[in-house]
Design a protein around this nucleic acid. Structure first.
Length: 293
DNA sequence: CACCAGGCAAGCC
DNA sequence: GGCTTGCATGGT
């Protein structure tokens, strides 16, 4: 991988295993959208970037090297060798994983902000992805901090303090339904120190999961998503309706299984790479629209 | 109209 | 422990 600045843009060459559609359409992130051919634009850590990817090269438009080094290099998980991960996931000859990896070959697991991930996946419960994106977008536009990028205004994800200061009625403009009370409660607990995000970051995964699940609105599946996307615990294998369907379809002769059975099967089969396997399978299931035809 | 969407909490047994 | 039900809202 080589990185250089040309005009106001950062150009990366020699970066394999990177496809914007695979990355931003595999359900991990709700704040990036297509922006013309081969490009996506979105906001993370209070910064906005337009990304263009073609072949093995990536452009970060109107981006300072400082922001690339401080934010985007880690956010885009550029240090990880996904070729090695894909080899490892498929070395047992499993045709299902081979096909899933072929479909989502450019997936990377973004290293997202913990707080944003917590609230985003509380909102995700019993919801669909377009509406999750809409609710989070309204949340940011209503209560985030504005900044300008390429002549337009974008908004940061609102802080725990900002949300904790709202009334339930004020928060209702995001139309999150029954999830609003969870969001408000979570923000208040983070602000009061009852929930300590730094402490959770430092915990072993089982302890972090228990701490997350003590929060109202965060259960088994949502905590697994937060572990994977917000805490970088790549062994976490969230089982949602899509994963349940694709796992039953591919590994259980299309017969219904409990979430516990699927989780145990995945842990045993994928181990430390469970989260990676989950993302390839999620993207694969949605591309095939398994169970929805 | 019923049913579903990246589930969860609470109430049952 | 596992199983059932209600839950806000918007789209089919």
């Amino acid at each position: 991988m080589e990185v250089k600045t040309i005009d106001k843009d950062i150009h990366i060459t020699g970066q394999s295993d990177f496809d914007l559609r695979h990355i931003f359409d595999c359900g991990q992130c709700f704040r990036f959208d297509p922006d013309g051919d081969d490009s996506y634009i979105g906001t993370a850590f209070g910064k906005t970037v337009k990304l263009t990817a073609e072949g093995n090269s990536i452009i970060l438009h109107d981006t300072a090297m400082e922001d690339f080094n401080d934010v985007w290099y880690d956010y885009l998980d550029l240090s990880r060798d996904y070729s090695a991960i894909k080899r490892s996931l498929t070395e047992d000859g499993d045709p299902v994983m081979a096909e899933a990896v072929r479909f989502g070959n450019g997936i990377r697991i973004l290293r997202q902000e913990l707080w944003e991930t917590m609230i985003s996946f509380i909102i995700s419960a019993s919801n669909n992805i377009p509406r999750i994106k809409k609710i989070i977008g309204t949340l940011c536009e209503s209560f985030g901090e504005p900044h300008e990028y390429r002549g337009k205004i974008y908004y940061s994800f609102p802080s725990p303090e900002r949300i904790a200061g709202l009334s339930l009625e004020e928060l209702d403009i995001i139309r999150a339904g029954f999830r609003s009370k969870y969001i408000l409660d979570c923000a208040k607990k983070v602000v009061s120190g009852e929930i300590d995000l730094d402490a959770i970051r430092a915990m072993p995964t089982p302890d972090a999961k228990k701490a997350l699940m003590s929060i109202w609105g965060i259960g088994n599946k949502v905590s697994d998503c937060i572990l994977l996307f917000g805490l970088g615990r790549c062994d976490s294998f969230p089982v949602d309706v899509w994963i349940k369907r694709i796992m039953e379809y591919c590994y259980f002769d299309n017969t219904p299984q409990s979430i516990k059975t699927i989780s145990e099967f995945a842990d045993k089969k994928f181990g430390e790479l469970g989260g990676m396997a989950q993302q390839y399978l999620f993207f694969y299931a949605r591309e095939l629209r398994i169970g929805t035809k």
